[in-house]
Amino acid sequence: MGIELELHSARPARKGPARDTFLRGSYEHGEALAAALSGLDRHGSGKLGWVDPYGDTLFNEQEAEVARQEAAALAEGCGDARHKAALLDLAGLLDPCAATPGSYVWFLGD
């Protein structure tokens, strides 16, 4: 199980040419990211608990702003080097998304 990440300039098409909006992706920390997010409460106040490790999840720029802060806090308190690297990589995609109206981060679960 893993979660791949993609940054898009607009809402990506779930079917068809999602590459039209694709800016960059992250595919090397999938399993570590899924593990780092696995203990989060889906019903809590954060956004990262909403990420479905088995399906796809989209965050717009407002959701990315909240998730960016959450990922940074999780990375700071993380003792596992692989999980920390995955969370910092996630924050690296959430930052430009939060700063760009109309953009999205797409979490692609297994």
Rank of each mutant, 00 (worst) to 15 (best):
M1F: 11
I3R: 02
R11S: 01
R14K: 03
G16H: 05
G16S: 00
P17C: 09
A18E: 01
R19D: 08
F22T: 00
R24C: 01
G25D: 10
G25V: 01
G25Q: 00
G25Y: 03
S26E: 05
Y27K: 14
E28D: 13
H29R: 12
H29Q: 12
A34H: 06
A36M: 07
S38D: 13
L40C: 01
D41S: 01
D41G: 04
G46F: 10
K47V: 11
D52M: 04
Y54R: 12
G55Q: 06
G55L: 04
N60W: 14
E63R: 13
Q69K: 15
E70P: 11
A72D: 15
A72V: 15
L74R: 01
G77I: 13
C78G: 05
A81K: 14
H83I: 10
K84T: 09
A85K: 08
G92Y: 05
L93G: 09
D95Y: 15
D95M: 15
P96N: 14
A99R: 15
A99S: 12
T100V: 09
G102F: 05
V105P: 10
V105E: 09
V105Q: 10
V105I: 14
F107E: 00
L108N: 07
L108K: 11
L108P: 00
G109T: 04
G109I: 04
